[in-house]
Design a protein around this nucleic acid. Structure first.
Lengths: 161, 161
DNA sequence: CTAATAGTTGACTAAAATAGTCGGTTATTG
DNA sequence: CAATAACCGACTATTTTAGTCAACTATTAG
């Protein structure tokens, strides 16, 4: 089992997408700047998120990504699974062939732990995270710090209008 | 956060130690054979377990390792921590400096997850695992399969006697 | 005393995963 | 047509995992 920046980045980016929804698609460049994640790396992650039908894309200018389901219908476990290929704590992938064909001494312990983690993460949806005060305050800070991008979009909106 | 064979091996080896306690120290060679873990790798892991005062060693013939505390007083989280340096799901080690000095959008989520995992694993002691029927049956199977080692020691005992 | 046993230590290594980078292609919009 | 932004594949440095190997030390049986 592994939970590294890959899974954390994916959840963070999905939450950013949820927060900035409503004003059309969100570009990876915006997410990259706000969340401090490499653009190229985001591309890799979003390829997986799209394959797992958690997001949909819009190409061309003004394009970007949007959530492909309601915020209530996307949970953290799904996002991590999409990029990480499962949060399994067993060494055998639940097959029970950890020690030459049979189960090892601690097989059931790791099964229990896997369930525990999966249950916890699958109960938390993007909508839940959106409601949290700590998330809201960090999001507010990020929007303030990276308002340049916001202003730029205002300017281009004026220009194009 | 990472939970790989390293942590699993450590818990498995500690449980093996608990199961075969009472008949004097248990050698790493025995654990290696029963649990199918490389002897040299076990040496590395037990160096850490000893530094963390979870086991004590007896050198020389008939030597090996013993638990350094009661089975009730050793939990799974302690064992994993000893070899893995913590089961932390945050990227910042709980310092809160995930995004250039401030917390990232999902910081508290990973803190919550870390607590969840730690609470779960720290509630399970070696004594708890010993009582489980699945553990007892796997242990019985392993003792049966590797009785050769036991017989060998009987034979060599006869020869040297 | 000595031979065997078994822990102790440190250095080394192959393979995999992480966390990216880079260059180019394709679709869309103005 | 030019700019934008998603898409794709190949490449890479670094770290971790999961070991191996060789040498050394302490202890015990005989």
């Amino acid at each position: 089992m592994r939970l590294t920046t890959k899974g954390r980045y994916a959840v963070t980016a999905m939450l950013d997408l949820a927060i900035h929804a409503g004003k059309g698609p969100v570009s990876l460049a915006d997410i990259s700047e706000r969340q401090g994640i490499s653009l190229s790396y985001l591309e890799q992650l979003f390829a997986k998120l799209r394959r797992n039908e958690l997001v949909r894309s819009v190409r061309g200018p003004g394009g970007g990504y949007q959530l492909n389901r309601e915020q209530r219908d996307i949970n953290v476990a799904q996002v991590i699974d999409a990029v990480n290929e499962s949060v399994d704590a067993t060494g055998c992938g639940h097959t029970g062939s950890c020690q030459d064909g049979s189960i090892c001494l601690t097989h059931h312990l790791w099964c229990d732990l896997s369930s525990q983690i999966h249950d916890f993460l699958s109960q938390i949806t993007l909508a839940d995270l959106m409601e949290r005060s700590d998330v809201r305050s960090v999001a507010k800070r990020q929007d303030r710090e990276h308002s340049s991008a916001f202003e730029d979009s205002l300017i281009s909106a004026k220009v194009t209008a």
